[in-house]
């Protein structure tokens, strides 16, 4: 398997007033194609900074980050933006769907920023993405007509629509109850089994066990890396859980 993400001696400093905060103090990390990596750590450990850099939202102070064979450390802001548009999919804790906008229009959004995709293709791809997250019957629903889990699935569909090389999820289950969390994790596992690479930030160890590999950050360095042995199958987990009756 080829190395999709390669991080070499990466450092990131923030300047808050006159104080320099060393958020990342030399990180080496590799994610190969088809992996499902969970990044863990306490708050302030540098995991979010790491995800921002992997997501091309931020640039390292020192060191190299090679994504899909391209060193992004030297790219301009605009190049980063079009890189994010073509190579990456984001899923956020707070979904970040556009309010009063249908699921379909929300999912189409990333393709609006890609002038190579025409409106007919855009629609087809958005419909396919919504189908792959099981929301074909909700395409004209607006966020306030959807449950939290459904909203997050729309967000996942949005992250899939541009066919990214990697999906980055930042505490994607943070706002959801346990059952819905496992539903979302089941979806991620399903996508992963179809070959999608997933990098997932979480602080819940149970959720992290759904991944294939865990990377634990502490104080700006990698504390521990481990391949998940008895990996949780979220689908089976759901089956064993009592169905809530409202």
């Amino acid at each position: 398997m080829k190395n999709l993400i390669e991080i070499i001696k990466l450092k990131k400093d923030y300047y808050v007033g006159e104080v320099t905060v060393h958020a990342l103090k030399g990180v080496d990390m590799v994610v190969t194609e088809g992996e499902f990596v969970a990044i863990m750590g306490a708050s302030g450990s540098g995991k979010s900074t790491m995800l921002n850099i992997i997501g091309c939202l931020d640039k390292p102070t020192l060191g190299d980050y090679i994504l899909d064979g391209i060193n992004i450390s030297g790219l301009s802001k605009n190049e980063l933006a079009s890189y994010r548009n073509k190579k990456l999919g984001f899923v956020f804790q707070t979904y970040n769907l556009l309010p009063r906008t249908t699921a379909l229009d929300n999912v189409e959004l990333p393709l609006m920023y890609n002038s190579a995709v025409k409106s007919k293709e855009r629609r087809e791809r958005a419909l396919a993405a919504l189908e792959s997250v099981g929301l074909s019957d909700r395409i004209y629903h607006k966020p306030n007509q959807l449950s939290g889990g459904q909203q997050q699935r729309v967000a996942i569909a949005r992250s899939l629509v541009n066919d990214p090389v990697v999906i980055l999820a930042d505490e994607a289950t943070g706002n959801l109850d346990t059952r819905t969390s496992y539903e979302i994790m089941a979806l991620f596992q399903e996508l992963n089994s179809k070959g999608k690479t997933v990098v997932f930030v979480t602080h819940e160890p149970d959720i992290a066990k759904c991944a294939t590999r865990n990377i634990i950050f502490k104080d700006g360095v990698i504390l521990r890396e481990s391949v998940v042995r008895d990996r949780t199958n979220a689908r089976e987990m759901l089956a064993s859980m009592p169905v809530e009756v409202d």
Partner: peptide, 16 residues
Amino acid sequence: TREIGLRMAIGGKGRD
């Protein structure tokens, strides 16, 4: 602001 952040994250350039 959040919408703008999202648009930027999914590939919107400053100019867009």
